[in-house]
């Protein structure tokens, strides 16, 4: 039982983080709070991916003594999995871009209605 929890708890923490962000995205009425929630959600997804790449006993995915040791045998198990890191570099950029566009839209909304509360904006549009 303890082993089971120890081997899974990191995923559960990320899922709880995701759900905090998810709740803020759909539950909060303030636009900036929604954006903060979006960021928490996406960051938690990124943490989740990075934790897939982990290997016990593995080190950073950079070859040691790479140059001049062409004949060395490289063990896959001694380096952590680089692929999730690469995917998340892309996902981080996507996240930053989404954040940028979302904030640009919020600035437009604020300049027009002078408020960031969803109900007040909807009232102003009607």
């Amino acid at each position: 039982m303890i082993d089971f929890i120890v081997s899974k708890y990191n995923y559960w923490i990320y899922i709880i983080l995701m759900m905090i962000g998810f709740y803020a995205m759909i539950g909060k009425r303030n636009l900036i709070k929604k954006i903060i929630g979006m960021n928490i959600f996406q960051t938690a997804v990124i943490l989740f991916y990075v934790s897939i790449g982990c290997k016990k006993g593995g080190t950073l995915p950079i070859l040691e003594h790479a140059h001049g040791h062409a004949g060395q045998v490289i063990q896959a198990s001694s380096y952590i999995n680089p692929l999730p890191h690469v995917l998340m570099l892309t996902a981080i950029v996507v996240m930053v871009s989404t954040l940028g566009v979302a904030i640009a839209i919020v600035i437009m909304i604020y300049l027009k209605y002078n408020t960031l509360e969803e109900d007040e904006i909807l009232k102003a549009i009607k």
Partner: peptide, 10 residues
């Protein structure tokens, strides 16, 4: 569009 951003990101 902002609502679309939120839903689309989800």
């Amino acid at each position: 569009s902002f609502r679309y951003v939120i839903m689309g990101t989800i």
